[in-house]
Design a protein around this nucleic acid. Structure first.
Lengths: 128, 128
DNA sequence: CATGAACAACTACAGATGTCGTAGTTTGGT
DNA sequence: ACCAAACTACGACATCTGTAGTTGTTCATG
């Protein structure tokens, strides 16, 4: 169940779709701050490309406008990003951890949380 | 001290340079497995582009060949990758952790290690 | 029923990327 | 001094990405 790589700009569109739920191109367009708002047609192009990549789909038509919805979940897309990064680093997660800590993005709480998750998964595997 | 984004292909070249140390284009070229070996000139183009991005530099000339070396460290390049991913995810590291665990790339040991590092950094900060 | 707003569909285009070929230059060896 | 091997320098080209304009269609409303 592989879905294609999404670019940065495409991810911004997806982000809007994930947040707003099924919606029209205009709604996506207007969900951006006026500061860095793309042209309506730019958003439209992105959505079309996402559609051809099967990352979004049309669900219905309201008046003249199509309503689109995400066809891939936020979690799945994020996992794809992480997996790609991981493969770039030869599958080693240490550098990732090191840099996360270094940049201050990772707190002790995050770690404890992760540890708990790992422990639970461990016992589950054993039960299995 | 910002250096530009490196693409996947460029990173493969950098990887060779980091592993081999200063070397010629031919040495980089031959360091790849025959299976997926790029043409010599492809490697050459990549190195030239990396040079214009200031990611590698010429250090000297041996006979007809230039010797290149990495101008950015592996750690710095990797940090850049992680930072980019982080910004894609809105600065939240939780999804990264979750997916790392899920994919099995993160072991309990990795976590313990990270925890130790964080604790040390914590005390250092306090001392400061 | 004519028209304009809103929308879809298509087209355009420059810059980045991945891949490679060709032509000219430098060198070590004979 | 001369030549072939090894390089460098440069150009080519298809594809992808980001950004946006143009043309055509539809629907509500005067």
């Amino acid at each position: 169940m592989l879905f294609p790589k999404l670019t940065k700009a495409e991810l911004q569109i997806m982000e809007a779709l994930w947040s707003l739920g099924p919606c029209s191109i205009r709604e996506i367009h207007e969900s951006f701050r006026a500061k860095n708002r793309l042209a309506y047609t730019t958003v439209q192009t992105m959505v079309y490309r996402l559609e051809s990549k099967k990352a979004v789909r049309r669900v219905k038509k309201i008046a003249t406008a199509f309503i689109f919805e995400a066809a891939v979940s936020r979690a799945a897309a994020q996992r794809r990003l992480v997996d790609d990064l991981l493969s770039l680093l030869g599958g080693r997660s240490r550098p990732i951890m090191a840099h996360l800590i270094d940049s201050g993005a990772l707190t002790l709480e995050d770690i404890r949380e992760a540890e708990k998750t790992l422990l639970i998964r461990g016992t589950k595997d054993q039960q299995k």
